Measured scan of single mutants.
Amino acid sequence: AVSDRLIGRKGVVMEAISPQNSALVKVDGETWRATSGTVLDVGEEVSVKAIEGVKLVVEKLE
């Protein structure tokens, strides 16, 4: 799938994300809905860990 190429890519949080709420991230110039197990604020850099349906699963870039 096209989205599989995004695993391992870096992105930027466009809307705050919490474990209860998905929000938008920008990866390679494209906007995607994403979820995370932690709270992520706007502007934080993230890494794509997986794809669940049409959502990216991201975590904060260390």
Rank of each mutant, 00 (worst) to 15 (best):
A50K: 07
V42G: 04
K26G: 05
E52M: 10
E59L: 04
G37P: 11
I17P: 13
R5V: 07
W32D: 03
E30A: 07
A50R: 10
G43C: 14
A34V: 08
V57S: 03
E62W: 12
A16R: 12
E30I: 10
P19W: 11
I51L: 07
V57R: 07
G11S: 00
Q20E: 12
S22V: 12
L24I: 10
V27L: 06
R33P: 15
S47I: 15
V39G: 08
W32N: 02
G8I: 02
S47P: 01
G43I: 01
E45D: 06
V54K: 12
D4P: 07
L24R: 04
K49N: 05
R9Q: 11
G43H: 03
V2R: 08
K60Q: 05
S47E: 14
G29H: 05
K49S: 07
A1G: 12
R33G: 09
E59D: 07
A34T: 06
V2Y: 10
A16I: 15
A16D: 04
K60I: 06
M14D: 03
I17F: 13
E44S: 09
P19M: 10
T31S: 08
A23R: 01
V27I: 13
V58G: 01
S18G: 13
E45S: 09
D28W: 05
V39N: 12
G11A: 06
K60S: 07
L6F: 06
K55E: 13
D4M: 09
E45K: 08
V2W: 11
A34H: 02
L61W: 13
V12K: 05
L56N: 01
I51Q: 04
D28I: 02
R5E: 08
E44V: 09
V48E: 01
G11E: 05
A16K: 12
G8D: 05
D41F: 15
S36R: 00
L6C: 06
G53R: 00
E52G: 03
G53Y: 03
V54W: 13
G43W: 03
V27S: 01
S18Y: 10
K10E: 07
D28G: 07
R33A: 13
V25H: 01
D41R: 15
I51E: 02
S22N: 10
G37V: 13
E52K: 08
V46L: 01
D41H: 15
S22Y: 13
S22A: 11
K26F: 13
R9Y: 08
I51D: 03
L24F: 09
D28C: 14
D41Y: 15
T31D: 07
R9G: 06
G53P: 00
V46P: 01
T38W: 08
K10L: 11
S22F: 13
I51K: 04
E62V: 12
E30Y: 10
G43R: 03
G37C: 14
E15P: 04
V12F: 07
V25N: 00
V25G: 02
V58E: 01
D4Q: 11
L24M: 09
P19F: 10
T31P: 05
K26Q: 10
L61R: 06
D41N: 14
G37S: 14
E15S: 10
S36K: 00
L6I: 07
L6P: 02
V46Q: 02
R5Q: 08
L6H: 04
L40S: 02
A23P: 07
V57W: 08
I17M: 14
R9F: 08
G53H: 03
L40V: 06
L24V: 08
K26D: 07
V58R: 00
E30Q: 12
G29P: 03
K55C: 15
G29I: 01
N21E: 09
D4K: 11
L61E: 06
K49R: 09
V46W: 01
L40C: 04
L56A: 01
G37H: 14
E52Y: 08
E59F: 04
K10T: 13
D28Y: 03
N21M: 10
G11K: 00
V42S: 04
W32Q: 01
I17A: 15
M14L: 13
R33F: 14
K55D: 09
T35D: 06
T38P: 04
V13G: 01
W32T: 02
E45Y: 13
E44Q: 11
A50C: 08
E52L: 10
G43F: 03
G53V: 02
G8R: 00
R5P: 06
A1S: 11
I17V: 11
E44W: 09
G29S: 05
L61M: 09
K26I: 12
T35E: 08
T35N: 06
G29K: 05
L24D: 04
L56S: 00
S3I: 11
E15Y: 07
K60L: 07
L61S: 08
N21G: 14
A50Y: 07
S18E: 07
W32F: 14
G37E: 14
I51W: 06
S22W: 13
L56G: 01
Q20L: 10
P19Y: 11
E30H: 09
I17H: 13
T38K: 07
G29C: 08
K55A: 11
V57T: 04
S3G: 10
L56K: 02
G29A: 04
D4T: 10
G11H: 00
V2M: 12
G29Q: 05
V42N: 02
V46Y: 01
S22L: 13
L56Y: 02
Q20I: 09
V46R: 00
E59M: 07
W32S: 02
V58P: 02
D28E: 07
I17C: 15
A16C: 13
E15W: 07
E45P: 07
T38Y: 10
D41K: 15
R9N: 07
A34G: 04
L56D: 02
L40T: 01
V42R: 06
A34Q: 01
V54E: 15
R33V: 14
L24S: 06
A50I: 03
V27A: 00
V42L: 06
I51P: 01
K55Y: 15
L61H: 07
P19N: 11
V46F: 06
K26T: 09
R5F: 07
S22Q: 09
V39Q: 12
G53E: 04
V48P: 01
V2I: 13
T31H: 07
E59G: 05
K10Y: 11
E45G: 05
G37L: 13
E52F: 09
V42D: 02
E44C: 12
G37I: 13
V54G: 15
V27Q: 02
V13S: 01
K49Q: 07
S36P: 03
V57G: 00
T38M: 11
V25C: 06
V48K: 02
V57F: 08
T38G: 10
D4A: 09
E52R: 08
V57N: 04
R33Q: 14
R33H: 13
V48Y: 00
